[in-house]
């Protein structure tokens, strides 16, 4: 991979909650247009790492990080960098679907309306395109004004993906976004993700090893805050015994 193909570069990154260190000196490069997955048992630091990429951990008091994360070569911790700009560039989908108490349409139109002044037609177009990209259009095209809460769990999660897509991000983070969903919804989301990677860089914490195998271009195994190994053939040729044990189900 050439250097200019790198979207995110994590350099000597450590993270602390109070005195407790939850990520230990992590180094990794994430390429453009790939699906990179981080997996591992609970308390491995995956969620913390994902929340560091858009600086959402700053909501918690008493946290501290060392090292650096670069996106397109620029540090996201630069004092001059805008956090809101970063979060528009790095969209995030959570484990629990979080539609706002608004209509389906307004949930998706929300970000574009606030972030840039746009005409009504432009917003309609952005919303429709985002819902289509998230594979939700067929389910909701006839009831865009219905409350988002009336959707099923899988539809709500696809709505949250559409909401992120409407912001035209460059990176999409999914933190165990399919863990509460049925296999059909999961399959739909995975299918749309493989289409979406042509335009975006996708970072995902899959909810199990099988999902990581299905959709990742490369995967990283994290254990107790350490990056054990990362690579494209981690599932077929794991280098580390712990990785092998985990993916074959000997522990986890």
């Amino acid at each position: 991979m050439s250097e200019n193909n790198i979207k995110i570069e994590i350099k000597n990154f450590s993270f602390y909650y109070g005195q407790k260190q939850v990520i230990h000196d992590l180094n990794l490069k994430i390429h453009k247009n790939e699906i990179m997955s981080f997996f591992g048992p609970a308390n491995g630091g995956v969620t913390t790492l994902l929340r560091s990429l858009n600086r959402l951990f700053e909501l918690n008091h008493n946290t501290r990080s060392e090292g650096d994360i670069l996106i397109d070569g620029e540090s996201i911790f630069d004092p001059d960098a805008s956090v809101t700009e970063l979060r528009r560039k790095v969209g995030m989908v959570f484990e629990i679907p979080t539609p706002l108490p608004l209509s389906i349409f307004d949930n998706v139109a929300y970000g574009p309306r606030l972030n840039k002044k746009k005409s009504k037609d432009e917003i309609n177009e952005v919303v429709e395109q985002a819902i289509k990209q998230a594979a939700l259009w067929d389910d909701v095209s006839d009831r865009l004004r219905a409350p988002a809460m009336s959707l099923s769990g899988g539809q709500q999660q696809r709505l949250c993906i559409a909401r992120v897509l409407a912001l035209k991000p460059e990176v999409i983070i999914l933190d165990r976004a399919c863990s509460g969903l049925d296999p059909i919804s999961t399959a739909k989301i995975e299918e749309s993700l493989t289409k979406l990677k042509k335009q975006f860089t996708i970072v995902i914490a899959p909810h199990n090893v099988q999902q990581a195998m299905r959709i990742s271009d490369r995967a990283a195994f994290m254990l107790m805050g350490y990056l054990v190994e990362a690579g494209a053939d981690i599932f077929t040729h794991p280098q580390d015994q712990r990785t092998d044990d985990y993916i074959t189900g000997r522990f986890g």
Binding site: L56, L59, T84, R88, L100, P101, L114, V164, L167
Partner: peptide, 27 residues
């Protein structure tokens, strides 16, 4: 209010005040 409202709004790139005004107060 569920934490997720606030996180969801902030992750969309809303500022803190926009989050309060447009998401938390209505909710």
């Amino acid at each position: 209010l569920p934490r997720q409202y606030k996180e969801g709004a902030l992750a969309l790139g809303l500022t803190h005040w926009q989050t309060i005004r447009c998401v938390m107060l209505p909710a």
